[in-house]
């Protein structure tokens, strides 16, 4: 959260990051992701496009049953023995990017919706991770898992992810319980699961499935995307508010319910923290006005923290 606030203050300066409004105005999701990742990696590596992130690890004698494509034929030529060449990338993470496609994600008080922002964020993360040679999968869900892409590092994976994200979302309500349980059952290997959602559910409902995921030894990161209006809840006059998910209409006088909204919101956040902290899950809130680089940075720092023993 502190990072988010810091980034917000930086964003107001408008010079350090890519202008998000302009970025989101571009329809091409791939372009958006590339721009963000390029800009971000510029500050991290001298030349991100050179060399391989796949580092040589060791040689192992070939035994029957091993994949013949892993044989180092050059070493065979020199030594007349079969050796398997093991690479660093085998130890790379599997990462599943999970995006919430519920109706509440379709809300946006500014030029773009939370889903649009989350989509861009997912694409950015996917590109960034793929460039790190991590195996990246993607999952979309509303009340249940609607689309599934197994985590892999191969050519065209990014395009598949983009293709999946380009599908129109037809979700109704947010229900994280069922999809998370489904993911826990589908993901066999230990993976990093990044969930991008607004978490407009009761915190108690999250406890069991997240604990299940953690019990399967997955690492879970929650990136909570919020609209600025959801944080501030500022209306000039009494309004009739309709829940985009349930369709329920409720008369709201901001003068009366403004305070209670803030109180309820923070209580919800506190309950989330209380539930997630014992599980070792970190959750970071972002507004849809926060720069993508900032989110990426937060993600990396979080990942380091999660990955550290």
């Amino acid at each position: 959260m502190s990072n988010a606030k810091e980034a917000e203050s930086d964003a107001t300066q408008g010079s350090k990051w890519i202008d998000l409004k302009t970025l989101m105005a571009v329809r091409n999701l791939q372009w958006r992701a590339q721009k963000v990742v390029d800009g971000f990696q510029t500050g991290l590596h001298r030349s991100p496009k050179h060399g391989f992130s796949v580092e040589f690890s060791e040689y192992r004698p070939y035994s029957v049953g091993d994949d013949p494509k892993t044989i180092d034929w050059k070493l065979y030529a020199r030594s007349d023995r079969y050796y398997r060449k093991r690479f660093e990338d085998e130890t790379n993470r599997r990462c599943y990017l999970v995006i919430d496609q519920s109706k509440s994600m379709q809300y946006g008080s500014i030029a773009y919706t939370k889903y649009e922002y989350a989509r861009t964020l997912i694409a950015t993360l996917a590109l960034f991770l793929l460039r790190q040679r991590d195996a990246v999968g993607a999952v979309t869900f509303d009340q249940r898992v609607t689309d599934w892409l197994t985590a892999r590092f191969r050519t065209g994976q990014f395009q598949r992810i983009l293709s999946m994200l380009s599908k129109p979302c037809a979700g109704q309500s947010t229900d994280l319980t069922a999809p998370l349980e489904q993911i826990a059952q589908l993901v066999q290997h230990r993976s990093l699961i990044v969930i991008v959602s607004d978490l407009m559910v009761s915190p108690d409902a999250l406890k069991a499935p997240l604990a299940f995921l953690r019990a399967r030894r997955h690492e879970v990161v929650l990136l909570r995307v919020l609209d600025p209006m959801e944080l501030r809840f500022h209306y000039e006059k009494p309004v009739l508010i309709r829940d985009v998910e349930s369709g329920e209409e409720r008369f709201v006088d901001p003068a009366i319910v403004g305070e209670s909204y803030q109180r309820n919101f923070h209580n919800h956040r506190s309950e989330l923290t209380e539930i997630l902290t014992p599980l070792g899950i970190r959750c970071v809130d972002f507004q849809t006005t926060d720069p993508m680089e900032l989110v990426l940075s937060s993600f990396l720092s979080m990942r380091e923290a999660v990955g550290s023993p």
Binding site: Y107, K114, M200, S202, L240, E245, I256, Y261
Partner: peptide
Amino acid sequence: SRPRDVIDFSSVLFLDPSAP
């Protein structure tokens, strides 16, 4: 008076009902 325009909102999870 009952507001004419209905405003969509992501969720009424944090809203307490307030009668006019």
